[in-house]
């Protein structure tokens, strides 16, 4: 599972990070990097940029770990830094331009001709959403952020976060939820799981 809430970082590793211990840094990276990468990949939908986020997050963690007063705060801190780096990239003019170009190609995702081949693929369904909507869905549904927290992060209101979540789910339901019902109706699902 790709969420931070499921992770645990040994307190010895956290203290080692604070001391600048090389082995603790490597352990923290092995433990946390897949979560950071997973989140960045799902939000940014670009492997290269997601790897940049991982790099920036861990450089910041290692360089500033000595300033952390509470070793238990490491996980929350890493998540916060990673989310900020994702947001920075979403807001960069370069990323916006790239996304605009991509949206021209995938303008109508609900159209039959552009429907997903594998409708069970939640990742691909997520990838069809606008970047900010993806971020709202991920932060709310996976990372457990409240609408108020997301609104503050995005410089918007809690209502904006709620509306983005609802919009995103409308598309996800069509691409993923609806498809699962169709599969269930046709009996394919039970055949797959048996």
């Amino acid at each position: 599972m790709a969420k931070f809430a499921d992770l645990q970082l040994d307190s010895g590793v956290a203290r080692g990070l604070q001391r600048g211990d090389r082995r603790a840094q490597a352990t923290a990276y092995r433990t946390l990097a897949p979560m950071v990468m997973g989140m960045a990949m799902r939000i940014l939908q670009d492997e290269g940029i997601a790897q940049e986020v991982v790099q920036d997050t861990f450089v910041e963690l290692i360089e500033k770990a000595h300033t952390l007063k509470d070793p238990h705060a490491v996980l929350g801190w890493v998540r916060k830094v990673a989310v900020n780096h994702c947001l920075m990239r979403l807001r960069s003019p370069w990323h916006k331009r790239r996304v605009t170009l991509e949206l021209v190609d995938d303008a109508d995702v609900t159209n039959d001709s552009t429907r997903l081949e594998d409708r069970q693929d939640i990742e691909r369904a997520l990838g069809t959403l606008p970047a900010e909507t993806r971020m709202v869905i991920w932060l709310h549904d996976v990372e457990g952020y409240t609408h108020k927290e997301i609104g503050t992060l995005l410089g918007r209101t809690a209502s904006y976060s709620k509306s983005q979540l609802a919009r995103g789910y409308q598309t996800l339901t069509l691409l993923y939820g609806g498809s699962r019902d169709d599969i269930e109706d046709s009996g394919i699902r039970s055949a797959r799981t048996s």
């Binding site: 790709a2 969420k3 990097a33 997973g38 991982v54 993923y176």
Partner: peptide, 25 residues
């Protein structure tokens, strides 16, 4: 359906970054 989607999102696995990421760091 909304519950299933949330569950599916929460079940997505972590992603291992490429080996060179640690070297770059």
């Amino acid at each position: 359906s909304l519950r299933e989607i949330k569950h599916a999102l929460n079940e997505l696995p972590g992603v291992e970054p490429a080996d060179e990421v640690w070297q770059n760091i």
